[in-house]
Design a protein around this nucleic acid. Structure first.
Lengths: 248, 248
DNA sequence: TCACCTCCTTGATCGTGATCATGGAGGCAT
DNA sequence: ATGCCTCCATGATCACGATCAAGGAGGTGA
């Protein structure tokens, strides 16, 4: 009985811990990364915790009113924009610590739906309060500018990929990039699980599913990777990187 | 003699007028668009006027240190990123009132060179002073966030274009977008001059020069546009828009 | 006026990756 | 088990646009 009570308290405490920036394992990557402890508490105060999203659930829908940006806490999501009828386009994948929704500021509406690829938790950051707080906290403001700027740079890289790279190079780039992002988050850069389908990957990279399948097969034959369903083992990251950056 | 002196004074005054945001014809589109008069003066005070760039001159080079963002005052520029050896990629064109260099904030270096396509004047806005000022002027801060957000949205549109659209649709989109941008700036949306070469257009859209040429020829045959060198007359904007947004 | 550029156009051929078609593998409910 | 999904793999064919090739148009300097 006493044991149960102690457990309950531990549980509450750890929940509390987990839901504060100070104790978040992502704090070195996330928006408040540049903040002092006392400033972080101010930032922490404006954040709303959300119930976890299940696979396939949407964080928000294309066209709905922009109120908040979201930091991914665990899991992963895809951004999908629909134009006309049935013509979807996957424009981004989001991993923990990444900021979702920044492209909605301008028009006060989200330009795409964002959908969980697996069970996913996010921190909701109401934008008007973030903006107000960024007035008082230059480091926070700077980090916000940097986040948006980084996304711009990443977009330019994606454009280059889409307009100049072959199918092989696109997939090599995709795996290299994923590997790097996992590494930065403290996970293995060599062994991970894809949370997105082949169709999502193809759509994102501007390739048909069949092409993705075929090239993964070829990469496997060449000893670059080992793929089994959604489990990926990168056997030769060097070669993959070389392939990704190759001229022509 | 008295006349000459009066003219000289007029000239100086008009120069002075031209180089202040309050008198700039772009003020309704540019960064300080949301500012009150007195705030605009503060903003105006941090701006550095630059000597006009001649065609082919660069505003800054890829990799050079990021210090300022630039607002285009007149003329136009292209952004070019080079990767490896000789593999250039045009990632953007900039028209008057647009903001150049925002993608350099994150890494404190410009990720691409920006080159004048014709005689071009810009306003230099030192970023640290802009950031500081954005602390005191919420409208300015908001406008800066919106500018970056808009660029993110435009990038996503470009990705869609590069990964899902045919060559015809890409060119139709390109001309529609140019037309719209000219319209917003008070120029004719139907008749304008391209400041960039076919090679630039092709590179930007992920197409070979030959393809650009051929499709422009076809558009002309179909009575959509009239093209003579770099002079463009849009004869059927409706059809062009339809073509650009077409499924498949 | 000439040669010499760069920029653009047009024609012929070829290759990458889309599309069409089929079948297998795995999950899940009944 | 069975059926019914979705997801993935693989084969055959086809088309869009790249590439190769050649020549014209227009500007610039000697």
């Amino acid at each position: 009985m006493a044991v149960h009570a102690a457990n309950a308290i531990d549980k509450r405490r750890s929940l509390l811990h987990e839901t504060r920036c100070q104790n978040c394992s992502l704090s070195s990557l996330c928006l408040p990364l540049a903040l002092e402890l006392e400033d972080m508490e101010q930032f922490d105060a404006i954040i709303r915790r959300r119930a976890p999203l299940k696979k396939g659930e949407s964080l928000f829908r294309q066209g709905s009113a922009f109120n908040s940006v979201y930091a991914v806490r665990s899991g992963s999501l895809k951004q999908v924009t629909t134009e006309g009828s049935g013509d979807d386009q996957v424009t981004n994948f989001y991993l923990p610590s990444e900021l979702v929704g920044l492209d909605g500021i301008d028009e006060q509406a989200y330009p795409g739906s964002v959908i969980a690829l697996e069970t996913t938790t996010v921190c909701e950051i109401p934008f008007d309060r973030l903006d107000t707080l960024s007035e008082a906290l230059p480091e926070l403001r700077g980090q916000l500018y940097r986040s948006m700027s980084k996304e711009l740079r990443d977009d330019r890289r994606m454009m280059r990929l889409l307009s100049r790279k072959t199918a092989d190079q696109r997939l090599a780039s995709f795996f290299s990039s994923l590997s790097d992002r996992f590494r930065r988050r403290g996970y293995s850069p060599y062994s991970f699980r894809l949370s997105m389908s082949r169709a999502d990957i193809g759509n994102y990279l501007g390739l048909a599913v069949e092409t993705v399948s075929r090239i993964l097969g070829r990469f496997q034959q060449q000893g670059l990777v080992e793929v089994s369903g959604r489990e990926v083992n990168i056997l030769n990251l060097e070669a993959l990187l070389a392939q990704a950056q190759e001229e022509h």
